[in-house]
Design a protein around this nucleic acid. Structure first.
Lengths: 246, 246
DNA sequence: GAAGGTCTGTTCGCTGACGTACGCTCGACG
DNA sequence: CGTCGAGCGTACGTCAGCGAACAGACCTTC
């Protein structure tokens, strides 16, 4: 399959004005993102930021006892490594590839040059864009907290499937129930049951690690309000990019 | 009681270099923060930022069915209204005073002037400080999500008491169990039971809306890892301020 | 075509939290 | 001093999700 990679597949890159885009693009390096690959480990200083194109990255917190929970998810709408320009250089969680694909990598130092660039008064498009994206990410995290508190596993699975679907070109995700359980921070059996409900209802089919979404509309109807809240906020804050579900 | 208010009671303000501190302080306005007062409503454009001194503010998400959950808490270590400098101007949650006190208020416009100020290359202390604080806030939100997923109400109550205690000068909080339940997103009865456990164990006493912490060390021993993770991250990211528990 | 590992389905008892309901007690206020 | 309401205690059945254990189905490998 011919696959013409381009940094423009990432919505943040694409939203940059030509001049800034060119300056950055010159230093971007295309890297493959195999499933399960760990981009950052908890507490370790980050060296690069990643602009996913076809890959999806999960921000995962791993507890002392080995349990885990997904904090947020980043695809071609965003950037992995916000701690670099936020100034902390590290975060107490792990960034792991949830869906294989590619991303463009950029040394943190080079990003910072552009981030801090301005004509006297700050006006850099990158600065503006990254901060707004970070606010959207904050919303996603906040909503994850709320969802974990109040909503059922069935609803959360719907939300999770939609989040992934929004960041993929197809309606099929390569994902075992075990992995989904790790992301959601629940038991594998719980996912089996919830996914079984969705399959019986005809919303999805799955088969040994391949989930196909058949009826997106009904999936949206079945999820909790959290999905829509986050999506609206992404669209409000990052208006230049195409809608996520393209 | 004589109470000499000063912007310096807020750690972010105090951490500013003299020049920038003076420029900001000139426009700060001391405002009382009565219990339950709503600073921002969900989705409404913010006009001011608030630097709490003695008050504590909760960021609360309110669901369509009226249920709620606390996303994060801000006291004299931080600032309320990060959406202003992040560029979104609003957030899909409510900011409400959880513990009465005071704060210094500043029009968002004036904050932005200083935030964007720089000598050619960005070097403003305020810019740097606010972004690092925001990263700490992100950590708090992420950890809230994890905690909601994996830890018991008992542990979460301990964590919540400690978070509040860290932002107060005394070891007594004015707080009914009903309010705590709203913050944690659980039933009032659940809080009654968890608080009863703590009281029987001699860690706290409470009486009609007044909770006194008797044994902070054992409270820390009883909470989950989430509390320590967040606290460490605040200390790492905001090294200039005095430790929270002063 | 046999073996072994991966992925999914199902079961059972258990527990933490929910929803509901009712009753008590302290304290403010008339 | 009595009333009334806010704040807290308790109890019951229900339920979602947990932990552990096991079985079947499928794929890969040799």
């Amino acid at each position: 399959m011919l696959c013409p990679h381009s940094p423009q597949q990432n919505h943040l890159i694409r939203a940059l004005p030509p001049e800034e885009g060119v300056r950055l693009t010159a230093h971007l390096e295309l890297v493959p993102m195999p499933l399960g690959h760990v981009l950052y480990e908890s507490g370790v200083k980050m060296r690069h930021v990643y602009f996913p194109t076809t890959a999806i990255v999960s921000l995962l917190y791993v507890l002392e006892d080995g349990a885990s929970a997904e904090i947020a998810v980043v695809g071609n709408e965003g950037i992995v490594g916000v701690a670099i320009f936020m100034g902390g250089d590290a975060m107490p969680n792990r960034a792991v590839v949830q869906s294989a694909g590619h991303a463009y990598r950029l040394p943190g130092q080079l990003l910072m040059q552009e981030f801090n660039r301005s004509g006297g008064r700050r006006s850099g498009a990158l600065h503006h864009l990254l901060l707004r994206y970070t606010q959207a990410l904050i919303t996603q995290m906040a909503q994850t907290a709320v969802c974990n508190r109040h909503h059922t596993l069935d609803q959360q699975l719907c939300r999770w499937l939609l989040l992934s679907l929004d960041r993929l070109p197809t309606n099929e995700l390569t994902m075992t129930q075990e992995l989904i359980a790790n992301m959601l921070g629940v038991r594998r059996e719980g996912v089996t049951e919830a996914a079984g409900n969705l399959q019986r209802a005809g919303l999805i089919t799955y088969h040994r690690g391949h989930i196909t979404v058949l009826d997106r509309a009904r999936l949206e109807a079945r999820t909790c309000e959290c999905y829509a809240v986050v999506n609206k906020e992404y669209e409000r804050l990052l208006p230049t990019r195409t809608p996520l579900r393209t």
